[in-house]
Amino acid sequence: MDRRLILTPLISLGVLSLVPPLLGFNNYYLLLASLILLYTTMVSAWNIIGGFAGQVDLAAGAYHGIGIFVTGLLFIFYRVTPLIGIFLGGLVAALLAVAIGYPTFRFGLREVWYALSSLALVVILYKLFLVWESVGGTIERYLPKVGFSWFYLMFPGNYLYYYLMSALLLVATIVVNIRIRYSKLGYYLLAIRENEEAAEMLGIDVRRYKLYALMIYSFIVGLTGGIFVLMLGYVHPVLFDSWISIQTAILGIVGGLGSIAGGPIIAVILLAIAEYLRVRFGGYIPGLHQILFAIILMLIVLFKPGGIGEWLDSLWHRITARRGMEVA
């Protein structure tokens, strides 16, 4: 168990650090790679609420957007450094999630209604910021031009830094996944996913633990928004994007519910293919990558509900188990 906590971040950081040289430190590719890592981070975070706790959450686009707006607006209006802004973005996202999650779980909303209300949250925030002219409105609000600055985390024309930030956040999220999975919290969430009544009878405060999962997930997704806005350079209500929600859930399900490795691996692969499709065919069929995601999702759910994580996990289990024995 402790092995995994050291090995996994080391291996994944090692692999991720090979990417920039392989891309020839090309700025455009690094931008794409950073975006892929941020989306992958969301998938890994989603695993906590969707995979472990079994709640089909479709609010990623909302929490991501909150991260974007909190980090962006604090920077634009008050010159608050994103070093703090990103963190606050995550915090506000988590607070919002709890404010909505508390009654949602209190009143026992499950499955379809939870999914629908979380998806509605994305549209509500989009429209709210559209109407709320003093912070949102229809025009882009650009981040101040401060030049190269560590303090403001601004690195104009050099996406390597953002790539590294995204990579660190992803690895941290995976570590959080591992920590949760093999702890009381993880077992409690899995029990809730498997059978809520049985979980209650084993002394689990189902609502409270669902809320914990929701908080951790929304906090991390909020952080991704903070890094995202630094790369993008502006805020706009359209960034409350329902596709982010759908994409995250699709990749989480295809990766395998509760699988720590499955989601991130499938996400990196499919998002890379998606970027290729977007660049290559985007002119003729703008949504080709979305079509691909949808078809893969439907095939996986209909024919291999465990997702690819199922055999990935058993493979990983076998490897680590053998290693563990050698050490012992």
Binding site: V56, I246, A294, L297, L302
Partner: peptide, 13 residues
């Protein structure tokens, strides 16, 4: 429910 949601979300996309 999860499978129904997933498949019909796929259809939506």
């Amino acid at each position: 429910p999860l499978s129904q949601i997933a498949v019909t979300v796929g259809l939506l996309v």
